[in-house]
Simulated scan of single mutants.
Amino acid sequence: MDFRDKIFLKSSENMKELPDKSVDLVVTSPPYNIDIQYGNKTSKGKVIDSKGIKYSDNLSEENYRKMLMNVFSECRRVLKDNGQAWINIKNRYLDGVVIPPFWILDMFPDMHLKNLIVWNFDWGGSTNKRFAPRYEFVFWFTKDKDKYTFNLDEVKIPALNYRPDRYKSQMKNPTDVWRISMVSGNFDERTSHPAQYPEDLIERIILSGTNKGQLVLDPFMGSGTSAAVAKKLGRHFVGYELVKEYYDIANERLSKIMEVNHE
């Protein structure tokens, strides 16, 4: 069975459809597990309108981490020997305390952390009890410490303080702090998914970490951003999604990209 360019409507805790060492890059943003009822509009702590898909992100901490361990164990199994994994995850604020996500390191014991990216954005939740959070992390792991794809020239950005007498090029390394806007309601890429990450974020990851024709896996596919970007950049994708509504959103999004590519 050709599993490329497909999204499976099932849990990614068992990816039996994927052979060992068949994937070049994993990129995903796992559920937050912060006990939010997604799909509801609230005001002063009360639901005032309901629309879209509803699901509660409220596993026990033990079951949450067990689920992630199962998924990431499968990701490590299907990654090629020179493969890599990019995991977008943020701090959680529970019971008045910040819980940093550094426990994610335990999920990749046999891989190597190459960068801890700080994704900085310009808007989000507000609070008057602490400084408003405006960043998330992206952990970049490689299976081999030395042999992995890194296409820096594909993702360089213009230097604001360029000096021809000191630098050969006006383009520079984007560093490990990425200022990329979150997906707002007026973005063309916006879907009804409540936690959609931006195509620009995934584009930088896929361009730097893969070559054309290679395979990108997202075990928490959501609205299909990883798949959409992969197809636009000439890569293959494979993914998993449990929620039928999101599965349908992703496939509709992909069908439009396929139509454009065939024009």
Rank of each mutant, 00 (worst) to 15 (best):
I99A: 08
S22I: 03
L217R: 07
N58D: 15
K145Q: 11
I117V: 15
L105F: 07
R76W: 01
V243K: 11
K114V: 06
E189S: 13
M107W: 10
Q196E: 15
R253I: 14
N91R: 13
G185C: 10
N186P: 05
D153H: 00
P198V: 09
Q196M: 14
V118N: 14
Y197G: 00
K54V: 12
G124S: 15
F121C: 12
A132H: 00
K66C: 03
A228P: 05
S12D: 00
P31L: 06
P219T: 09
M111G: 08
I180F: 14
E199V: 13
E252F: 11
G222D: 11
N161R: 09
I117W: 13
L233H: 02
R130Y: 14
D218G: 02
E203P: 01
I87Y: 01
M182Y: 07
I89C: 13
F121Y: 15
K168S: 14
D146L: 10
K232Q: 10
D57I: 12
R130H: 13
R190C: 09
K21C: 09
D2V: 02
K256H: 09
T149H: 05
M171L: 14
S208D: 13
T225L: 07
F150M: 03
M258Y: 09
K147G: 00
G125L: 13
V260P: 00
M258E: 15
A195R: 01
P19W: 06
S11C: 07
P198C: 01
G124Q: 00
K6H: 15
S56F: 13
L201E: 06
M182H: 02
Y162T: 11
E154Q: 12
D153L: 02
S11P: 06
S126G: 10
E154G: 05
K10G: 05
D81G: 05
Y93L: 00
Y247F: 15
R163Q: 12
S169F: 12
I104V: 15
D20Q: 09
V260Y: 02
D110N: 11
I7G: 06
G209P: 12
I89E: 10
D144V: 04
L116E: 14
I34A: 15
E61R: 11
A85D: 11
